[in-house]
Structures are given as C-alpha cells and as structure tokens.
C-alpha cells in the first residue's frame, strides 16, 4: 500500500508498510496512478502513450525503472510484516493508571467531557487517601514484572485534593524499593490553585505536567470560565510561566482545545508560544454534535487549511526566532514506537486503567461513568478480565476500517473512548477524528521532508 499527497509545494510518497518516505517529481506522481505491482520489465505501452502527452518518453521509461528498483528493494509497495505481530497483542500487565483524585472542579469549562468534574454521576467528591493507596497497591500487584509504572493525577481539578496527591506520591515512593518499581507521576491542572509550594512539589515529583489553557484570552475565557462565570486567562498565565521557568529541562505541555469557535487555532498555538511556552498541544474538541461548539464534517476544509497554516507558521518561527514543538506534528521517521504500540495505541483498558474516587475501575478517564465498561472496584477486589481482553485485542487489524487505512501505523487505531462515544463500538473509528488525524500526519511528514531538503542543501553547499 502507498499513500501520496501534495503539500507545501512537495509531492510526497509514503510506503505504508515499510514507513519509507520519498519526495517525487510530477512525473512519478502521475505514473504511480497508472502502474502498480506486479511490474512488467518495461513500462507498458499504453501508459507511455497516455503520459507522453505531458512528459518525454525517455523520462517516463527512466522513472518507471526507478519505481521498479525501489519495489525490488522492498521500500515501495512493500509487504505487510506487522500483521503477524498482532498475535502478540494479548493481555498485558497493567503499567499505567489515571487517578481521578478529584471528581470536582473549580472551573466550568463548557466542553468538559468530565462534565465539569462530575463525570455525569451527579455528585462531586474527592478521592480519599485510603482509596488512592488501594489504587497504588492494585497497580503494583497487576503490573507483574513491569518495573516502570505511571500514575497520572487527573480530575476534575487534582489540586482541589492536593494533600492526597502528596501523600499518594509519598506512599508509592515507599513501595519502590520493596517491590522493585519505579513510579513516574504526571498531573493535569487548570492552574488556578497553583502557588509556590505546589509548584515546587510538582517540579520535584512530576515527570510531566499538563497545563490547561486554550490560547488567546478571548478564546480561552469563552470556553474556560471559573465557577463564578469570569474568565480564567488572567489568573493562570503568570502561574504557568512561573512553573515552567522553575522546571528546568523536565517535560511539560500547555494543552488547549479548539472548537468551532476558533477554527483559526493556529493563532492560539502561536499565541501560546509568544507567552513563552515551547511545548504546546492544541487538540480538537470531543463533543456531542448537538452542541454549538462541536466540530463537524463541514468544518474539515477550514481545519485542514488551518493545519497547513500552522505548519507554515512553525517553519517560519523556527527559521526566524527559535524552538517550538507542536505535539501533533511530532513524528519520528527514524524509529518511533515499537510494533505493539503502533498496532494498539495507548493501551487503554489493558495496560492502562482509570480509577474513580469511589474506587471503580474503568478502561480510561473518558470511560468513567459508563456502566457498561466499569471493569471492577478496589473495595470489592473485582476486575473484569473479559473487558481487559477485549481492549487488548482491539488493534488496527481487528478494526476493519483501520486495516485498510494508510495512517494505521501512526494513529494506532484511534481513541477507543472516542470510538465508543461517537460510534458505540471501540472497534469503529470516529471518521471526523480520522480525517483530522490524517491531515496532521500529512503536515508532519511534509515538515520532515522540508527538514530533509534543507539538510541536504546544506550538506551539498558544505561539500
């Protein structure tokens, strides 16, 4: 399988099964519409006749030979070696956990999938230290021989329950030596309750921190008001800058959501960079289509154009000003994730679970409150392995739409929660998310192509 596209003045060719990426001329681009394996020794006469109206016959023959050579080298129309590895996609130890440490929030973000902290459960509550400790014990037990474990403090707003966050970290650390484990903690916060003590603790203990902000003040404040209705932008930007300035080289992200209200979201990304943040993620809203801010298929042309604009702006920024990293344009063409991750993605429901304040276990934070996917309860010592096995076997070869998609080894079958919420089945990818994902991937590959060209030119000039 191949995928080819035109973007940024380039003709780009991806060999899906090998991951090979090529920049091709117009002739190759057109010729690939007319030939495919099994290749004849020479370019078929009807193809020569057809394309000779635009290109020279000698060039067509030469180009055909190049295509056949790459095919013989196994980097064009290459075989699919990955399906055999899908048999390895079996139930794994649990190695990551999302702790809903606070099922409550001091903000009222309009698009919040957690329904401003309540998770649709109609009540607000904080996780007790006792439940948090049981969750850590569960993770240690279910992680079997895995040494490296991740715990994400999530909400609602986790800083509403900061004392339990601190004591949970302390408790987990106390188990590391005894059980030969290494905990890595992350936290996602809206920033309102950040102060010097919390910043110091987060920067000491949290391997990564996600700081929620949507971008420009008017964009952020429209969707992210406080419980009292006023905007949050002015209350958080200085605190975020303070946290990041003290963080050294540890990971962080400022993370925003774009909606139908800011389809010009490239301006929000660049605004966040202008505020001094280098690590930025701005992602499409997940919302019921009946809401006025939900994205729809009619928005796709504008969204696509905006990602192209963003790629241009990032290129220009890097050239003129310095570093910027946009999460969804990150692409490692040299190595990237291992095969199982490429096939199965985040590991939700299998390697990764979420725990509610009441000790209920779900496949991930977005499934919390969906009774059908409640996997068990810490107090009752229950854990549904049938659900775990269902998620373990949910990969790009068991999702029929994914199996034939060119982007499958990069998107890994999409988000199981989005699939369920939008399509009622974790195996049915949400088409709108797919289209956006594919566009981002094309932009990311284009940026790599430009990087390659630039390096190539520099090498030639230096030699």
């Amino acid at each position: 399988m191949i995928h080819k596209f035109k973007l940024g003045g380039y003709n780009i060719l991806l060999d899906v099964n090998s991951g090979g990426v090529h920049i091709v001329d117009n002739l190759t681009y057109d010729l690939l519409d007319n030939v495919q394996p099994p290749f004849e020794e020479k370019c078929p006469q009807d193809v020569l006749t057809k394309l000779s109206k635009v290109y020279k016959v000698e060039d067509i023959k030469e180009c055909y030979d190049e295509i056949v050579l790459l095919y013989e080298q196994g980097v064009l129309y290459s075989s699919d070696d990955y399906e055999q590895y899908s048999l390895k996609a079996i139930s794994s130890p649990v190695k990551a956990m999302c702790l809903l440490i606070a099922q409550d929030c001091n903000m009222r973000c309009k698009y919040c999938f957690a329904e401003t902290g309540e998770y649709g459960l109609g009540k607000r509550m904080l996780m007790s230290l006792e439940t948090a400790k049981k969750a850590i014990d569960f993770l240690v037990e279910k992680s079997a021989n895995r040494k490296n474990l991740e715990v994400d403090f999530f909400g609602g707003e986790p800083l509403l329950n900061f004392d339990v966050v601190k004591k949970t970290v302390e408790y987990a650390r106390s188990l590391e030596k005894k059980f030969d484990k290494n905990f890595r903690f992350t936290i996602t916060t809206n920033g309102l309750l950040l102060d010097d003590d919390k910043i110091d603790f987060i920067n000491k203990e949290m391997y990564n921190v996600v700081l929620s902000i949507d971008g420009r003040k008017e964009v952020n404040d429209r969707m992210r008001p406080l419980a009292g209705g006023q905007g949050s932008y002015d209350k958080i930007t200085k605190k975020y800058a303070d946290l990041v300035s003290k963080r050294g080289d540890k990971d962080y992200y400022v993370r925003g959501t774009y909606t139908k209200y800011n389809l010009d979201f490239s301006n929000d990304v660049m605004h966040l960079r202008d505020l001094g943040f280098e690590q930025i993620s701005v992602e499409p809203v997940v919302a019921d289509k009946s809401t006025p801010y939900a994205l729809s298929a009619t928005d796709l042309p504008q969204i696509f154009e905006e990602y192209e604009k963003l790629a241009d702006k990032i290129l220009k920024y890097k050239k003129e000003k310095g570093f910027i990293n946009f999460f969804h344009f990150m692409l490692d063409l040299d190595q990237g994730p291992c095969a199982i991750k490429r096939l199965r993605g985040c590991g939700s429901g299998n390697e990764y679970v979420a725990v509610s304040p009441e000790g209920d276990i779900y496949p991930c934070h977005q499934f919390v409150g969906i009774e059908e996917y409640k996997m068990g309860n810490l107090d009752e010592h229950t854990f549904n392995y049938d659900i775990k096995n269902e998620f373990a076997a949910a990969h790009v070869y068991t999702k029929s739409d994914c199996k034939k998609c060119w982007a499958k080894f990069y998107c890994s079958g999409g988000c199981n929660a989005n699939n369920y919420i939008y399509c009622g089945d974790i195996h049915k990818p949400h088409k709108l998310s797919c289209e956006i994902q594919k566009k981002r991937l094309e932009c990311a590959i284009m940026l790599k192509a430009i990087e390659f060209e630039s390096k190539h030119q520099n090498d030639e000039e230096n030699s």
């Binding site: 060999d15 090979g20 920049i23 190759t28 060039d59 180009c63 190049e66 790459l70 390659f452």
Partner: peptide, 11 residues
C-alpha cells in the same frame, strides 16, 4: 535517482 528522493524503512 533522478525522479525520486528518499527521505528514509517500520522497529
């Protein structure tokens, strides 16, 4: 290669 420039073989 005159027509195809390879940037980078999918671990």
């Amino acid at each position: 290669m005159k027509h195809i420039k390879t940037i980078n073989a999918l671990t």
